[in-house]
C-alpha cells in the first residue's frame, strides 16, 4: 500500500514512505561527517600528492607554481637532513618495544588482585593525560644540569660531575627524548593490556591456581595466548608510531643537536622555510611507508594468526572460548527479557 500512496502523491508521497524516509535519514546523517572527512582529510591528501610535484610556497599564486616532476622526491632521499632523520625512528622504535614489554609486565602484575593496585595504576597512567607542551617543560626542567634527574641520580650514589648533559650530548640526547615518550605512554599501554587480561575468564586463573601453576606459568599459558593479538597489534602500531615520532623533539629540543626526527624536519620545511612541495613529498613518502607497514600487518594477521588459532587451539583456550560464548548467550537472553 505504501507503494501505491507513493505513486499517487509523487515526490512528496515518496518522502513520506518508509523507503523515502530511509533515504532521507541516510543522506541527512551521513552528509555532514562525510563532508568534514572529505574536506579535512581526503582533499588535503589529494592536494598533498599534487603539491609534491611543484616548487611552491603557501603564498604562491596558482599560476606561478613551478612544476618540477619527481625532483622533490629525489630531494627527500638526497638531502642529508631528511633521510638521516628517518634513522632516528630506530631510537623511538627501540623505546616503543621497551615500553610494550614494561607495560605487559606491569599489567600482568596488576592483574593479580591486591591492595593498592588502583593507586599504582593511577600514578602510572596519569602522565598520559598531560598535554604535550607541559610535558616539554617538565622534561626541560627535569633534564637541566644539576636539576631533578641529576639530583635523583646523586641520591643513588652517582657522581654529578660524571653525568652527561642529557639534552645536549649527542650520544645520549635521543635516548633522553625517547624516555619522555615512554614515560608518557607506558601507563596507557598498561591500562590497555590490563583491559585485555581482565577479559579472560577469571575461572581459568582459579583453575590454574588449583592445579598448582605458578605466576610465571599462568602468564605463559593463560595470559599470553589470550592477549597475543592485541600485543602484536601494538608492536606493529609502535613501528608506525615511531616513524611519525614528533612531540618530544618538537617541544623539548626544537629538533636541535641532532634530535630532529622526520616530522620535525618536515614541519620546519613546511611552516618555516615554506618549501611546501618538498614537505608534501616528505609526507607522501612517509605515508607510503606507513601503508606498507599496515598491509604487512594485515597479511601477518591473516596468515600467522588464523592458522595458529584454528589448528593450535589449546585445551585451555578452547575452554575459555566456549565459556565466553555461553556467557554471551546468557547475557543476550537477559537483554531480551
Amino acid at each position: 500500500m505504501e507503494e501505491a500512496v507513493a505513486g499517487r502523491k509523487g515526490f512528496g508521497g515518496w518522502l513520506r514512505s518508509r523507503k523515502g524516509q530511509k533515504t532521507l535519514i541516510c543522506v541527512g546523517f551521513v552528509a555532514i561527517p562525510l563532508i568534514l572527512l572529505l574536506s579535512f582529510t581526503y582533499i588535503p591528501f589529494v592536494e598533498m600528492v599534487r603539491f609534491s610535484f611543484f616548487k611552491m610556497k603557501y603564498t604562491t599564486p596558482v599560476d606561478k607554481r613551478l612544476f618540477v616532476g619527481w625532483r622533490n622526491y629525489l630531494d627527500v632521499f638526497r638531502r642529508k637532513d631528511c633521510f638521516s632523520a628517518l634513522k632516528l625512528s630506530l631510537y623511538y622504535c627501540g623505546g616503543a618495544l621497551f615500553q610494550l614489554v614494561l607495560a605487559l609486565y606491569l599489567a600482568t602484575i596488576l592483574s593479580f588482585k591486591a591492595k593498592g593496585n588502583n593507586l599504582f595504576k593511577g600514578f602510572m597512567f596519569f602522565p598520559f593525560l598531560i598535554n604535550g607542551i607541559a610535558v616539554g617543560f617538565i622534561f626541560k626542567f627535569f633534564y637541566t644540569r644539576g636539576f631533578v634527574f641529576d639530583t635523583v641520580l646523586s641520591w643513588c650514589g652517582f657522581d654529578m660531575d660524571n653525568l652527561p648533559f642529557w639534552l645536549k650530548d649527542q650520544r645520549i640526547n635521543n635516548w633522553s627524548l625517547v624516555a619522555t615518550s615512554v614515560w608518557r605512554y607506558f601507563g596507557q599501554n598498561m591500562v590497555l593490556f590490563i583491559g585485555a587480561i581482565m577479559s579472560v575468564d577469571s575461572e581459568l586463573y582459579e583453575a590454574a591456581e588449583l592445579d598448582g601453576a605458578n605466576r610465571f606459568q599462568q602468564f605463559v599459558h593463560i595470559i599470553l595466548p589470550s592477549i597475543k593479538t592485541i600485543v602484536t597489534l601494538n608492536i606493529i602500531l609502535s613501528i608506525t608510531g615511531s616513524l611519525s615520532a614528533f612531540e618530544p623533539p618538537y617541544v623539548i629540543t626544537s629538533g636541535g643537536n641532532g634530535t630532529g626526527t622526520y616530522f620535525v624536519i618536515m614541519n620546519e620545511i613546511a611552516h618555516v622555510s615554506q618549501k611546501v612541495g618538498l614537505a608534501s613529498a616528505m609526507a607522501v613518502v612517509l605515508l607510503l611507508i606507513i601503508f606498507l607497514c599496515t598491509i604487512l600487518q594485515k597479511l601477518f594477521f591473516k596468515f600467522v594468526f588464523r592458522d595458529a588459532e584454528s589448528e593450535d587451539e589449546s585445551y585451555k583456550a578452547k575452554r575459555a572460548r566456549l565459556r565466553a560464548e555461553k556467557a554471551r548467550a546468557r547475557a543476550e537472553k537477559k537483554g531480551v527479557a
Binding site: 551521513v30 562525510l34 572527512l37 574536506s39 579535512f40 582529510t41 581526503y42 582533499i43 588535503p44 591528501f45 592536494e47 598533498m48 603539491f51 603557501y58 608506525t240 611519525s244 614528533f246 616530522f263 618536515m266 614541519n267 613546511a270 611552516h271 611546501v276 614537505a279 608534501s280 609526507a283 612517509l286 605515508l287 606507513i290 601503508f291 599496515t294
Partner: peptide
C-alpha cells in the same frame, strides 16, 4: 566504502596532513 574511508583516515598522521590542511584552512 564510507566505513573504509574513515578507517583509512585513521592511518594518516595528523602532523603530516597539516601541511596541506593549512592551505585549505586558509
Amino acid at each position: 566504502l564510507i566505513r573504509n574511508l574513515f578507517l583509512f583516515a585513521s592511518l594518516l598522521p595528523a602532523v603530516a596532513m597539516q601541511v596541506t590542511v593549512y592551505n585549505i584552512m586558509q
